[in-house]
Simulated scan of single mutants.
Amino acid sequence: MTTASGLPAIRESVQWAVLDAPGGSPALIALAEAAVEHYALNYRKHPPAVLLEEVRGTRNLLSTATAAADRETEHALRRQVGWLSALLGNLAYHLDDRAGARTHLTLAGALGESTQEKALTAWASGALAMVATARRDWEHARKHAEYGLQHAPEGLRRAQLLGWALLPTLAATSRVAEADDAVAESDEIMRTADELPGRFGYDRAEHRLHVAEAYLTLERFDRAAGVARESIAAAPAETPGWVAATLVLALAEAREAPDQAATRALGVLDLVPPPRLRATARERLTRLGRLLDASAANSAAELAERLRTLPPPVRADGTAA
């Protein structure tokens, strides 16, 4: 599925369905569910700025149909608008628009509650915890994570909220015993849980990434490196998850092996085009650059220059780079 032709075709199919049934129909509900599934499963294949425009367009089409739908159809369409809003929030976050991310994710959570979609409420709360963690707002991060855990179905969803949402704030606030408990419980769930693909799913590669980052925050660098290697081994090469785990490994190595850490980061920059580097990857690269600032290694100097000239994901005029 190419970005240039295949991705707009999804939105265009939704547009035709709305034209065919302006007040909604069972076919439009099914098509909306399929569109959400497509965007979620193919999330990492498209540049975030491009995907955001397509998801936004699809959400607007469904919003038009929702306004004219009967009660049952409206309920079903609002649920899919909620999932699309969750995608928009995640995309905004990956484009470093944290205020936009909070806006979309708050709407997603509200629609999850009003449509009784517990998985959506839980996921949106976890994503809000992620956004709060990024701005070092530990109090709200923990509240969002705990709220998500209250709504998360048992099994994989609980492991996801523990590892993705709660663990980062526990590590950041040095709640070591609680962080270890969260790792132990989520690890136990992941041993037997069936993985779910896509943006709303969770798998062992992502789980090990969050555990590695928590160990990095707690300055358990050897553990962080070992778990990051597990995440790299489980993630498809050159995907955003692979990039994240590779950069976490580099951060864990930076103090003892600066040349190796810089070389690892340069390898990422050689393989991944700038438009596909998420804001989270750029933030990890910036942290690594600061750690290596005093290093005499040639690779560290090369990395500093590459980071200095790295184009932004979105130009000053708001268009994708």
Rank of each mutant, 00 (worst) to 15 (best):
L167I: 09
T169I: 07
T169G: 04
L170T: 03
L170S: 09
A172S: 15
T173M: 11
T173E: 06
T173K: 09
T173H: 07
S174G: 03
R175C: 04
R175Q: 15
V176S: 00
V176F: 06
V176E: 09
A177C: 01
E178Y: 01
A179S: 12
D180R: 09
A182C: 15
V183L: 00
V183H: 07
A184W: 02
A184Q: 12
A184G: 10
E185H: 06
S186Q: 11
S186R: 06
D187A: 14
E188G: 07
E188W: 02
E188N: 11
I189R: 04
I189W: 06
M190P: 03
R191L: 08
R191C: 04
T192V: 14
T192H: 11
A193W: 00
D194K: 12
L196I: 12
P197N: 12
P197E: 15
P197S: 14
G198S: 11
R199Q: 15
F200C: 11
G201E: 13
Y202L: 14
D203G: 15
D203M: 07
R204V: 07
R204S: 10
A205R: 00
A205E: 01
E206R: 05
H207K: 09
H207M: 14
H207P: 03
L209R: 10
L209Q: 12
L209N: 05
L209C: 04
H210S: 10
H210T: 03
V211S: 03
A212Y: 01
E213N: 08
A214S: 15
A214Q: 05
Y215N: 11
Y215S: 12
L216D: 02
L216H: 04
T217V: 12
L218A: 13
L218P: 01
F221A: 11
R223E: 14
R223H: 13
R223M: 09
A224F: 10
A224G: 14
G226Y: 00
V227N: 01
A228S: 09
A228D: 02
R229W: 10
E230G: 10
E230S: 12
S231M: 02
S231E: 05
I232Q: 05
I232T: 02
I232E: 00
I232W: 00
A233Y: 01
A234M: 13
A234Y: 09
A234T: 11
A234K: 12
A235D: 09
A235Y: 05
A235L: 06
P236Y: 12
P236E: 09
A237I: 05
E238R: 08
T239N: 07
P240Y: 14
P240A: 13
P240T: 06
G241M: 09
G241R: 06
W242L: 02
W242P: 00
V243C: 05
A245R: 08
T246G: 02
L247T: 02
L247I: 03
V248I: 15
V248N: 08
L249V: 05
A250Q: 06
A250V: 07
L251F: 10
L251N: 11
L251C: 13
L251H: 07
A252E: 01
A252K: 05
A254L: 02
R255Y: 03
R255N: 08
E256H: 10
E256K: 06
A257S: 14
A257Y: 05
A257T: 14
P258G: 08
P258V: 07
P258Q: 03
D259M: 09
D259V: 10
D259T: 14
Q260M: 03
